[in-house]
Design a protein around this nucleic acid. Structure first.
Length: 422
RNA sequence: GGAGAGGUGGCCGAGUGGUUUAAGGCAGCGGUCUUGAAAACCGCCGAGUGUAACAGCUCCGUGAGUUCGAAUCUCACCCUCUCCGCCA
């Protein structure tokens, strides 16, 4: 959520920066609602002040015959207040509902552009493996090895669900443990294991609601949502809290499955593990002091990259342009891993700073000084990494001519010493 | 699922219709005293909104209601705890 004051006082500039996302207007209607709200507030508050003082007087008057006039007068004032409060409530809801649908301001570092074609390559690591044979896509490798059963996933649930078997299931679990151990052991994150279902408030805090309900799976009774990323429960750990400045940055690493409807992507990435309704992810989440959030994003991105480096997987880092960043994000790096079976780079991690956008929605604050007013923290998060996509990257990059797959050395301790899946 | 108890500031906790501007305590901050510390004593000490700064207004789990006036009364809901039942 954007700061109302900022919009009020820098209307044109704010609108202009928002428009770099590609829309033609984002703040239409704000001024009218804001002015109406302030007018109602002013009138209502002065009547309440009157009521409070007169009520006090009534309490102090002993001679009850003198009280009747005042009571009658205040009855009318109260009725008027009731009407104003109702109008105000409506306007407040409208204004709040409006603000909740306005996306975040792009960070000044975010390049202006309309689509992914305007994203900027920041760096690359490693190089694509060379094969003396034609590299296969992971769905062929996985099916031939009997470790990925897409048909059975479809039978059990439907499209975009997969059954992992044997070494495939174990490799997924190995990757989860490897990533968690790295981030908690080497990078200073605290491991958390949150609920996979959350309430509406949590979803609103991080920005999935109210705008993107159609992307979420939900339960009917009670009204809960399956998390689309651990970002949601983990960021909401500190919802409505005032954190100690000395505790910042707070860094969490969490493994969770993620559930996404993928509405609107019918026919896209239908084969293999790329786009599933349920997938595993290790997520990194930080709560940082505003002056340190930029460098914390760099560190978090480096922490995610480290996973790929240790696995020996070639990748590139893209800085997303204003037209390609998500609704809540101010600045985003995508890490894209090389997939030889498909001869392309695919996103395997998305690392973003949200500025105070989520913190304002979820009311996550800190104090600069012991006695100073609470200020909003900055939130930062990124995948470290998407596990299913990492598994498929391992399959495609470590495939051998005979159809077997070499297990990267760092994963062998997690695989009971297995060096090759065949 | 059944029965009961309860939700008040960072924490503990009083408060059952009107000096409650939410008592008191703990923690925290500032000061006096002290070579320094502790103790003692004095003062400050919730959030939001709003203002140049005051003032004002709102907030006692959430929402609705009664009243001139609600932390306090009524209704609904949410959450926590205890016991019983069921259960990984």
């Amino acid at each position: 959520m954007l700061d109302m004051k900022l919009i009020r006082e820098n209307f044109e500039e704010t609108e202009q920066r928002l428009c770099s996302r590609g829309g033609s207007s984002y703040l239409d209607g704000f001024k009218e609602l804001d002015e109406k709200r302030r007018a109602l507030l002013k009138e209502g508050e002065s009547l309440k002040a009157l009521r409070n003082t007169v009520s006090d007087e009534i309490a102090k008057i002993k001679d009850k015959s003198q009280v009747q006039d005042k009571i009658l007068e205040m009855r009318e004032v109260s009725n008027r207040i009731k009407v104003l409060d109702e109008e105000l409530k409506q306007v407040d809801e409208d204004l709040n509902g409006f603000l909740l649908t306005v996306p975040n301001l792009p960070h000044l570092d975010t390049p202006t552009g309309l689509s992914e074609h305007d994203n900027v390559e920041v760096r690359t690591w490693g190089s694509a493996p060379q094969f003396s044979f034609t590299a296969k896509p992971h769905w062929e490798i996985g099916e031939e090895l009997g470790i990925l059963d897409f048909e059975c996933g479809a039978k059990l649930t439907g499209a975009r669900f997969t059954l992992y078997r044997g070494a495939g299931a174990r490799l997924e679990r190995a990757l989860i443990n490897f990533m968690l151990d790295l981030h908690t052991g080497q990078h200073g994150y605290e491991e958390v294991l949150p609920p996979f279902l959350v309430n509406r408030e949590s979803m609103t805090g991080t920005g999935q609601l109210p705008k993107f309900e159609e992307d979420l799976f939900k339960t009917v009774d009670p009204d809960f949502f399956l998390i689309p990323t651990a970002e949601v429960p983990v960021t909401n750990i500190h919802r409505s809290e005032i954190l100690k400045k000395s505790d910042l940055p707070i860094c969490y690493a969490a493994y969770t499955p993620c559930f996404r409807r993928e509405a609107g992507s019918y026919g896209k990435d239908t084969r293999g593990l790329i786009r599933q309704h349920q997938f595993n992810k290790v997520e990194l989440v930080k709560f940082a002091h505003p002056s340190e959030s930029d460098q914390e994003l760099e560190k978090l991105t480096a922490n995610a990259e480290k996973v790929l480096q240790l696995l020996g997987l070639h990748y590139r880092v893209m800085l997303l342009c204003s037209g390609d960043i998500g609704f809540s994000a101010a600045k985003t790096y995508d890490i894209e891993v090389w997939l030889p079976g498909q001869s392309c780079y695919r996103e395997i991690s998305s690392c973003s700073t949200f500025g105070d956008f989520q913190a304002r929605r979820a009311s996550i604050r800190f104090r600069e000084e012991e006695k100073s007013k609470p200020e909003f923290v900055h939130t930062i998060n990124g995948s470290g990494l998407a596990v299913g996509r990492t598994l498929l990257a391992v399959l495609e990059n470590y495939q051998q001519e005979d159809g077997s797959v070499i297990v990267p050395e760092v994963l062998r301790p997690y695989m009971g010493g297995i060096e090759r899946i065949s």
